[in-house]
């Protein structure tokens, strides 16, 4: 009987071996771990967040979750504080990234123009330091720097005869302070990208422009900007995503105040989730932030592709 079984099994080995060695199986086998990893660490939490966002539930009493449909979303989109957080985040992104690009371009251009000076390499590395510091630490440093009584900022202003500034105590000053901190930290990142873009422009193109009698603004608008716009857009996409996640500095310095002047989306979501433990509302806020990120990123990536094709 055993021999019969073995004989019957023998012909089945061949197709099984063929299947194992097939391209289809191997592709699947190699991709599977990544898919499982993504499913467990990305897709499942997202699905769970969506599930929570449809319930009235506190993180401390999960068993008492009550299904409320889209109520959390409706409440959020009619909550003046959440809407203010959206506006603040948008304003922070536009203003901050615009300033970063302009400042970064000027500095990158200076570094490229003076690249023959060896000692500048060290300065360039030093210039990268702010973006290497953890944002939470940046927030703490600036909360000391901008301390109205004991901070060095007001001390220096006093040294040149200027009065103290309520850096985080006034609605306009607080937003400008947050912007300054953000720009200080992330301009080096943008500069790095722009410098890479500028260095990739062939020197003969500059030579040709010079021979053609091009002025500096012609070189800027007709040669440099078109050459770096792809890489700048990539930087903009990354910075927009970063700004949508912008949290630490605001958390440490202003907690969204004074008033609601520096409230941002992530701080709002954090407060709902981890200070008030309102997991339903907090998850709905997180889902909205994710949707906004996806829409902006999709739009920006399409734009990037179009630029690359051009």
């Amino acid at each position: 009987m055993a021999n019969i079984a073995m004989r019957a099994g023998a012909p089945q080995e061949a197709p099984r071996r063929a299947f194992i060695h097939s391209d289809r199986f191997q592709r699947t086998a190699f991709i599977a771990p990544t898919c499982i990893f993504l499913a467990l660490l990305t897709i499942w939490p997202f699905i769970y967040s969506v599930y929570l966002s449809l319930h009235a539930v506190k993180l401390t009493a999960m068993k008492r979750a009550v299904f409320v449909g889209a109520n959390n979303y409706i409440n959020l989109l009619s909550d003046p504080l959440f809407l203010r957080a959206m506006v603040n985040t948008g304003m922070l992104a536009v203003t901050s990234i615009t300033c970063e690009i302009v400042i970064a371009f000027v500095i990158a251009k200076a570094f490229v123009s003076l690249s023959h000076l060896k000692w500048l390499n060290g300065l360039r590395s030093l210039f990268m330091l702010p973006m290497m510091v953890t944002p939470l630490i940046v927030g703490m440093i600036f909360s000391y720097v901008f301390n109205p009584v004991l901070g060095i900022a007001n001390y220096l202003l006093g040294g040149v005869g200027l009065g103290p500034v309520p850096w985080f105590g006034d609605t306009t000053a607080a937003m400008i302070s947050i912007l300054l901190i953000n720009i200080w930290q992330w301009t080096p990142f943008m500069m790095l990208l722009i410098m890479a873009g500028l260095l990739s422009i062939r020197s003969d193109l500059y030579e040709a422009a010079r021979v053609d009698g091009a002025k500096w603004h012609h070189v800027l608008t007709l040669l440099e900007i078109p050459s770096i716009k792809g890489i700048v857009l990539l930087g903009v996409i990354l910075r927009i995503i970063d700004t949508l996640r912008f949290f630490d500095v605001v958390y440490v310095t202003t907690r969204g105040g004074p008033g609601d002047s520096t409230m941002v989306l992530t701080l709002y979501a954090y407060q709902q989730n981890f200070q008030f433990f309102q997991a339903g509302v907090g998850s709905a806020a997180a889902v909205i932030i994710l949707v906004i990120s996806m829409v902006i990123t999709t739009f920006a990536v399409r734009l990037l592709r179009r630029i690359e094709n051009d």
Binding site: N147, P148, F168, G169, D170, A174, T254
Partner: peptide, 21 residues
């Protein structure tokens, strides 16, 4: 209060007092 007192919390208040301000 000092300039920026609108942003004072526990630490800022105690530190400014300890600093003699």
């Amino acid at each position: 209060g000092p300039p920026g007192v609108e942003s004072f919390a526990w630490d800022e208040r105690a530190n400014a007092f300890a600093a003699g301000k």
